[in-house]
């Protein structure tokens, strides 16, 4: 069984994994990182989106062995020193979540989108989130939250 090393939310792990173990299984079932849920079999829903070496991936479509040596950030690793990431805060302010199941993936995708396009238009937000499905919100408030989150992330950069 291959042995892999990964860093997840700042903690280094070494694990022996079956080759077929998906990254999402590694996170949820081996490391107890259940903040990242799995919502489909075909990489459509995006609920399982995490950052792998700084870029979003769908953790249901990455083998744990493929992630060997990488640095992973999940929804559980976003808040720093007990304060929410600006995008998390924006989702709260704009009521951009209802059941919350898509939220971890949606927030990760939104952060990636804003890193790439710091001041996104509504159209850019909608297209940038096309890989993340939500069944509750109709996306209106998610789009608003991403706009607000982008502003706050921009201010955070300026002030740091």
């Amino acid at each position: 069984m291959p042995r892999i090393s990964v860093k997840v939310d700042g903690i280094a792990y070494e694990e022996d994994v079956e080759p077929r173990l998906l990254l999402v299984h590694l996170l949820r079932e081996r490391l107890g990182k259940t903040g990242t849920p799995a919502g489909c079999d075909t990489s459509n829903c995006g609920a399982c989106t995490v950052m792998l070496d700084g870029k979003t991936v769908k953790s249901c479509s990455v083998l744990a062995v493929q992630a060997d040596g990488s640095d992973i950030v999940t929804i559980e690793g976003l808040a720093a020193n007990g304060s929410l990431h600006p995008m998390q805060r924006a989702f709260h302010e704009e009521h951009a979540l209802q059941c919350g199941f898509c939220t971890p993936g949606m927030v990760m995708a939104a952060i990636d989108l804003v890193r790439d396009t710091p001041d996104p238009s509504e159209e850019a937000i909608r297209e940038g989130l096309e890989g993340n499905l939500c069944r509750c919100t109709g996306y209106c408030n998610i789009v608003r939250a991403v706009k607000r989150g982008a502003q706050e992330m921009g201010q955070a950069v300026k002030s740091s």
């Binding site: 259940t34 903040g35 929804i75 559980e76 709260h92």
Partner: peptide, 19 residues
């Protein structure tokens, strides 16, 4: 009112049955 439910859901401290 902003929701009381959100903070937990936004930080992955969830209790889905499969968790």
């Amino acid at each position: 009112r902003r929701r009381k439910e959100d903070a937990r859901l936004l930080t992955g401290r969830t209790r889905w049955t499969d968790n």
